[in-house]
C-alpha cells in the first residue's frame, strides 16, 4: 500500500496575512510551516500503510524558494521521501495549474494506491485542487472524508454532507481529500526529527515535470481591485461583575426577540 500525501507549506497563520502590493497576491516569501490541516492526511496515510502491513508514505509539495521546512515535519512524522516542485515561474499560478503540477509530481513518484490531500488550505482556501488532480490523473475521487478504511482493492469512506454523512465505496487507485479532526496527528519524535534531515527530497521545476505555461503566464484571471470592506463598528464592551446577564436580557428585549 503506497500512499502519496499532498502537503502545503504556508505562512504561519499566527501572523496576519499580507498582500504583495505589486501583484495583490498573498505574500508567501517568509518562513513557511506545514499547513495544520495537512497533518491529518499524513497521519491517516501512516495509519493506512501500517494497517496494510507494508508500503510507504511519500509527500509532494509546491512552494517557492526551495522551502522544505514544512515537508521536514511530515518526514519526521514518518513519511519516507518527498518531491518538492519549486520554481519562480510558478508564482501566480491558479488552482488548475497547481493541480496539473501536483498530478505530475504524483506520476513522478509513481505506483500510488492512494493520493491524500486536505480539503482546502488554511491560507488560500480555494478548495478545488484535490478533485482537479483526480481529473488530471483520470482517477475517481472522494472529497470531505472523515474516515478512510481499505478493504482489499476497495476504499471505504465516511464522507461529510450537509445533513450528516454518507458511506461511500470507491475503487483504488483514487484521490481522497480528508477533513480536519479525523485522526490525531502524531508529534514527531526526536529520533524522527533527526532521521527526517537525511530523508530524500527531490526538488524539481515545472519544466522538469513537463508543465508549461505556468504562473502569471498560465493564469487566466486578473486581480483588478483590492478594497477594504466597510468596518463593522464595535459596540459596548463591559467587564462581567456577576450581573451582566441582565444587560444581555435587556439587549434581547430591545430587539423584541424574547
Amino acid at each position: 500500500m503506497n500512499v502519496i500525501v499532498c502537503v502545503k507549506q504556508i505562512p504561519d497563520p499566527a501572523s496576519p496575512g499580507e498582500l504583495d502590493p505589486s501583484s495583490n497576491t498573498l505574500k508567501r516569501d517568509g518562513k513557511l510551516i506545514l499547513d495544520e490541516s495537512d497533518g491529518y492526511g499524513v497521519e491517516m496515510a501512516l495509519q493506512l500503510v501500517d494497517t496494510a502491513g507494508g508500503g510507504e508514505v511519500s509527500i509532494i509539495s509546491m512552494a517557492p524558494n526551495g522551502e522544505v521546512s514544512g515537508m521536514r515535519t511530515a518526514l519526521a512524522m514518518g513519511a519516507v521521501k518527498g518531491v518538492l516542485v519549486s520554481d519562480p515561474e510558478l508564482a501566480g499560478s491558479d488552482a488548475l495549474t497547481t493541480a496539473k503540477v501536483l498530478a505530475a509530481a504524483v506520476k513522478k513518484i509513481g505506483d500510488a494506491d492512494l493520493v491524500l490531500a486536505g480539503t482546502e488550505s488554511s491560507d488560500g482556501y480555494t478548495g478545488t485542487v484535490p478533485e482537479q488532480m483526480a481529473e488530471v490523473l483520470g482517477l475517481p475521487s472522494v472529497t470531505f472524508a472523515k474516515t478512510v478504511t481499505i478493504d482489499g482493492e476497495t476504499l471505504k469512506v465516511e464522507r461529510q454532507t450537509e445533513a450528516g454523512y454518507d458511506e461511500v465505496t470507491c475503487p483504488l487507485p483514487a484521490v481522497v481529500s480528508v477533513t480536519a479532526g479525523v485522526v490525531e496527528p502524531r508529534y514527531p519524535s526526536f529520533k524522527g526529527i533527526m532521521a527526517a534531515k537525511s530523508k530524500p527530497v527531490d526538488t524539481v521545476t515545472a519544466a522538469d515535470l513537463g508543465i508549461t505555461p505556468v504562473g502569471w503566464a498560465g493564469a487566466r484571471q486578473e486581480i483588478v481591485d483590492v478594497a477594504q470592506a466597510p468596518e463593522r463598528e464595535a459596540g459596548e464592551i463591559i467587564e462581567d461583575d456577576g450581573e451582566t446577564f441582565t444587560k444581555i436580557v435587556q439587549y434581547l428585549d430591545g430587539l423584541k426577540v424574547i
Partner: peptide, 15 residues
Amino acid sequence: LGSTGGATVTAVHVE
C-alpha cells in the same frame, strides 16, 4: 465515466 467513475454512495446518514 471510464476510470474516473466508481465512487458510489452506499448509505446515507442524517443527523
